[in-house]
Nucleic acid binder design. Sequence first.
DNA 1: TGTCAACTGTCAGTGGCTGACACTAGCCTC
DNA 2: GAGGCTAGTGTCAGCCACTGACAGTTGACA
Lengths: 211, 211
Amino acid sequence: METLRERKKARTRDALLHAALELFTTKGYEQTTVDEIAEAVDVSQRTFFRYFASKEEAAFFVPRLTETHFVDAVRARPPHEAPLEALRRAVLESWDTINEAIQQVVPLELHMRTYRVIESTPGLLAAHLRRSMELEEELAQIIAVREGLAMDTDPRPRLVVAVFGGVMRVVERMWIAGDDLSIEAMRELTAAYLDGVGPALAGNWRASESY
Amino acid sequence: METLRERKKARTRDALLHAALELFTTKGYEQTTVDEIAEAVDVSQRTFFRYFASKEEAAFFVPRLTETHFVDAVRARPPHEAPLEALRRAVLESWDTINEAIQQVVPLELHMRTYRVIESTPGLLAAHLRRSMELEEELAQIIAVREGLAMDTDPRPRLVVAVFGGVMRVVERMWIAGDDLSIEAMRELTAAYLDGVGPALAGNWRASESY
DNA sequence: TGTCAACTGTCAGTGGCTGACACTAGCCTC
DNA sequence: GAGGCTAGTGTCAGCCACTGACAGTTGACA
């Protein structure tokens, strides 16, 4: 059974999160002070910092969920798949299931708006990239274990993951820049770009005008 | 002719830069306050912020030089080279010439130490990654022009550059982690990893145990 | 040499973040 | 169901990065 204390805690945390994201997406991240967030929920500033280690952490609360979700999907991939193939299937698959998980915490539309804020706020973008790098390190670890390799001596786990991460960041960018924000659009971009890497690296682009 | 004012200005900027990097590398970036840096040069804190927009900017003063240097090298590549080939040659080439340029501003050894601080300080690492991303955007632009493509519709410029950037970040990581900090070691890593990308993506690693 | 502009110091203030302490409210035991 | 225990909170004081405003100083240039 859930105690009253815990329910109360969860409620203020949710309230703080909502207030924060709502303010970030309306008046901008840097223009929003922690005092304002706290005031909107009617708690002290000090309390905000007991729930979130920093103002930044509030912005990345939902993204953190999706990352965990994706990592789990990679871990669940059958070991006979080649590394890049496993990563590819894991992303495509995790998108189908992640939305429900998000919506239990925050309206999907609010999360989308937040994502835009992250991409357009220098400080948040920087933090996002560092988080991506940490995630890549974790993925490389998983791949290395799958393939029975030592990451210290063999760079290949990190290389595939780095390439994969690079492509995914281009996908994010193009997806957000475009006007079709559906999951399907994202799936198509992902598939197309991952397929496009090989040819793009080869480099005789003038011969094959496929775009 | 150089005026006295300008010389004086250059001298305080150099002094501030040196003091900052020296403090960063000895007691750590976050443990160093701007007041300490200013005090070491015997100027007011306000003056520091007139030379550097932020504490961060001081840490990235030298890296910014090397980036510009590298971008110039890419621009100078003959247009018949394939994109990835041009990028590859540009890095390898720019390393040979960059060191002199650095040493005119800061002792090479101090710069190395600073680089380590950047990689191990979360806030600086995040900033570094964002800078890398901006650099990649610039490179993609150059590539797009070289190949006569529109970046809005054709993702290939961004894709090659993203892959290239990803590999270079792995190179940085492994190079700093290793114990051979010579330029030659870096050249070898770069060449090996760039060559290794294709095979690593293919994925049947168990067949070819080349590492 | 005197005037103008650039450079600097001082001061006051904002915002993110932290430690310390006192207080309140839910929990658990007797 | 009254007691103590403890988790959660508010208040206060303070650090640090950073900024605007104003006044003083010092190099440039006629």
